[in-house]
Design a protein around this nucleic acid. Structure first.
Lengths: 232, 232
DNA sequence: CGGTCGGTTGAAGCTAATCAATTAGAGTGG
DNA sequence: CCACTCTAATTGATTAGCTTCAACCGACCG
């Protein structure tokens, strides 16, 4: 948990143009810690004291209001979270908890802000990172605004299908309760949505899903690159 | 419509740390144009050829999918839009149209990207701008996920009430059809939501709203700084 | 006038959330 | 190996929230 030059961190687009000294300095101030599942790492409203990276495992970003809770995103290796709050030195807008046993890298926010002020290449890398984040949230927002629950599920399955690359097969990234929350619905509703998709060749066993008729599922889902493509 | 040193643009946090030469160069390449209401300025999926600023008037950002349309945001003077797409040199995720007669500043995307590469202060200003955008969308997303239509309307009214600073009075920023879409509901539903709020002292006449009992409206709305505060 | 447009109201239906009950699975300990 | 437990997941019944369709109202405008 000291001066670790984790190659997977060093090679992130955020850091790969950074000088060795600057990067070492950041890493010397950082903490690498293992957490069990279901540990709260930070809570919305807290001051942004650290920038986080998921090195291993999985983290849920979630939020509460009016007695309701919603999972906004899953972060998997190697992804960062709450960069915007750190840079603006404001409070977190989302809470974060480990959803599995996870290894988390924590960099003090002040060190990030110092590096941002000092290192021009780092500042530029942050721009592209933030712009990507921004576009990702806009897509999530459009997904929620413009689609029904069944459509969101269908498109999510097709997205996993493409990224996982196994023809006709999809592995869900989490339990169904969490998936439901990510998709903005209740577990009951997700269960019924899977039922609705059965005639389109979707068969679910635990976290494994068989897509028996991708063509007809695609007709139903009407995937839209401006919502579903991770790259655009 | 040539080399205009619009002071309101020059003083934006995006540009105020930029050198005079760089700023002039940007402005020399830019176009300042007047548009009537209901003109489409750009469409989602188009290449990001320009960065836009609303100098006067108002612009709606909206998106379509699955036969539905939703207004995602209103941009008023002096605000920019689609900065993320320009920086990443990708396609727009949202469409934009004038909702009133508007004066629009258009800066070619390539000039923005050049300035970003060349000017360190500009790159840093962009970071803070993008981080603010990101947080704004996250708030919109939470608003939609965690609140009912009536709650969204109540909180929006309270937000306008604060920003407009007139005790007990609110001026709606657009017609009700557009407001409904911004709030993620149908015009009919918005009309009924206003009806629901009547017992809480909300009286609507055209685009003017009287808040007769801010206290009880606040109890209903349960405003949350992590969703409603523009500053955080 | 008639026409259009923004807005409202009513009725019906759909989507999704809630509540309640049950089933299925994954450990645990005897 | 079998109960026992705990949780995830499903299913059914009900309700809430919202949309849709249709009719209607009033203001503004030719």
């Amino acid at each position: 948990m000291r001066i670790v030059d984790l190659p997977e961190i060093r090679q992130l687009s955020l850091f790969d143009s950074m000088s060795d000294e600057s990067f070492s300095e950041l890493m010397n101030a950082a903490y690498l810690q293992n957490f069990p599942a279901q540990v709260d790492l930070l809570h919305e409203g807290d001051n942004a004291d650290f920038l986080f990276f998921v090195v291993e495992g999985c983290v849920e970003l979630y939020a509460n209001a009016n007695g309701r809770e919603g999972v906004l995103a899953l972060v998997r290796p190697v992804g960062s979270f709450i960069l915007a709050a750190v840079l603006r030195n404001e409070v977190y807008l989302m809470s974060a908890r480990t959803s599995q046993k996870s290894r988390i890298l924590m960099i003090p926010a002040q060190n990030i802000r110092d590096a941002f002020k000092r290192d021009d290449a780092f500042a530029r890398a942050i721009v592209l990172e933030l712009a990507g984040y921004f576009r990702a949230v806009v897509k999530e927002y459009k997904d929620l605004r413009l689609r029904t629950g069944v459509e969101r599920l269908a498109n999510r399955l097709l997205k996993y299908h493409i990224t996982q690359g196994a023809p006709g097969f999809v592995q869900l990234p989490c339990d169904k309760k969490t998936l439901a929350s990510i998709l903005g619905m209740t577990p009951e509703n997700l269960s019924r949505a899977f039922g609705t998709l059965k005639p389109y060749g979707v068969d679910v066993v635990g976290q494994k899903v068989v897509l028996g008729d991708v063509a007809s599922l695609t007709v139903l889902a009407k995937p839209n690159p401006l919502i579903d493509d991770p790259s655009t």
